[in-house]
Structures are given as C-alpha cells and as structure tokens.
C-alpha cells in the first residue's frame, strides 16, 4: 500500500508545471524515504531529478518500494481539477496498474477522486557523480527567469561567466549583443533577494537558452535558485521546495565543434 498526502494541491501543481514541458512521462519511485523521479528530456540534453522527502508530507506510507510510471500530461489534466487549497492524496495498492489521486476541500464537503492508468516505462537511471563545483551562485529565482527570458531574444545560447566579481550572462546574435552582470550583494535585509557567489576558480560555460527557460518553469516553487558550475560538466540548476525536497535540472554544456 502506498499513500502520500499533501496539505495543498498547489505544490503538486507547481511541481508538475516545472517538469511537464521537458518530460512527457516519468517514473515516480516511491520508498519509505519519499518519492524520487529522474528522467532525461527527449533529446537527452538535460536531466530532471525530483526529490520529495517523506517527512515533508502530511501523511506518508509506503509498505513496499513502488515505481509508478505516469503520463505527465494526464496527471496535469487531473491536477487541473483540484483547487489550490485542496488536500491531495496519492494512493496505490502494491503491484497495482492504476493510481488514485484524491482531492478534498478544506471543509471536507467536496471529495473527488481520479484514477489513472500507470505505465511501464523503460527509463534508464543515470548515476550522477559527486562533483566539486568551481562556482556556486545563489540568486533570486525571478531574476534568473527574467535573465533567461531576456537573453533568449538575442541568441539560442547564453554564456555564463562567473568570477569573484560576479556572474555575467551574455548572448549575441543578429540583433546585437546583450550582457547582464550581477554583482554579489553586500548587506541584504532579505535573504531571498541576495546574490551569493562561492567561487573556487572562475568558469565560463555556454548553454542552450531553450532548456534554461524550461527550467525556470520551477520559479513558483522557490524564491531562490542555485546554479552550480564547473568546466566541461553539466550545469546544475536547483530549486528547493520548502520543507519537502528539491528539483534539480542538469544541462549538458555546448562545446567547441
């Protein structure tokens, strides 16, 4: 028996919004430690890794490890039927071929349940090596989304250059050139507005705007985003989900021909 309950459907809606543009389907691996999903996008350029800890749920029960392959478009349709404040419960029997998603209004007067067929997805799991990143940047998630959106107008690619002075995002194309520099913030009253750079050595990497913009669909989940970079390895874009877990996107860099 698997049962996981969250106080607010809005969190699950936001999580789905954050992954459904990159992935058509995904396997939710459930164990007593929580729920994990790892999948590459169709082009195998990026990897999505979602972790939801069992202690972040209002109720969590997982008697046996369970892998639930789900069509994320179908799941999005079901979640559209929930009000943001509804309780949401995901339930499945052991070895079941369906999952039940139940919504309850705060006053318990409306209860709806939706059944969805599970899929047997033959998704490969990739081992992500421990990496000592040369630069780790923490910045407001909205600012990062704005920069990615703005620079996508100029080029398919954005160059991210991180030094101890700050982080620079650049793009150039037919229209011209664009450079956005962010300096590390000095004294900040609000932690969520801070730009913090931890640099071991400077790094310059090039990434596809299209994927960065897809990652920023996670912006409603978190006030801050963390970018981890190292020469010649994938960028990690991490959004923490308050008291529940995180979503990490890995993006392969663009390399010299």
């Amino acid at each position: 028996m698997f049962e996981a309950r969250l106080g607010q459907a809005t969190i699950l809606k936001k999580i789905l919004d954050a992954i459904k543009d990159l992935l058509n389907e995904g396997t939710f691996d459930c164990s007593d430690s929580g729920i994990q999903l790892q999948a590459m996008d169709n082009s195998h350029v990026s990897l999505v890794s979602l972790t939801l800890r069992s202690d972040g749920f209002d109720k969590f029960r997982c008697d046996r490890n369970l892998s639930m392959g789900m069509n994320l478009g179908s799941m999005a349709k079901i979640l559209k039927c929930a009000n943001n404040e509804d309780n949401v419960t995901i339930k499945a029997q052991d070895n079941a071929d369906t999952v039940t998603i139940m919504f309850e209004s705060a006053n318990q007067e409306k209860v709806s349940d939706y059944g969805m067929k599970l899929m047997n997805l033959d998704q490969e799991h990739l081992g992500i090596p421990e990496t000592d990143y040369s630069c780790v940047v923490r910045m407001p998630a909205m600012e990062f989304a704005r920069i990615c959106r703005d620079l996508a107008q100029f080029s398919e690619s954005v160059v991210i250059c991180c030094t101890k002075e700050g982080v620079k995002f650049s793009a150039s194309g037919d229209v011209g050139t664009a450079n956005i520099k962010l300096a590390q913030t000095g004294n900040v009253d609000k932690e969520e507005e801070a730009v913090i750079i931890e640099m071991q050595e400077p790094v310059t990497l090039t990434f596809a705007c299209r994927y960065l913009n897809a990652f920023t669909k996670a912006t409603p989940l978190s006030t801050q985003v963390q970018l981890s970079m190292c020469a010649d390895v994938p960028l990690v874009v991490e959004y923490r989900i308050n008291e529940l877990g995180h979503i990490r996107y890995y993006l392969a860099p663009k390399i010299e021909d």
Partner: peptide, 14 residues
C-alpha cells in the same frame, strides 16, 4: 560554432 553535447556523455547508466 558550438555544438550541443548530450547529458549521456557525462553521466553513466546505473
């Protein structure tokens, strides 16, 4: 001209 690399080049199958 820069080419897009694959995430598979960096992570190995488990």
């Amino acid at each position: 001209k820069k080419l897009q690399s694959s995430i598979r080049n960096y992570f190995t199958a488990k």
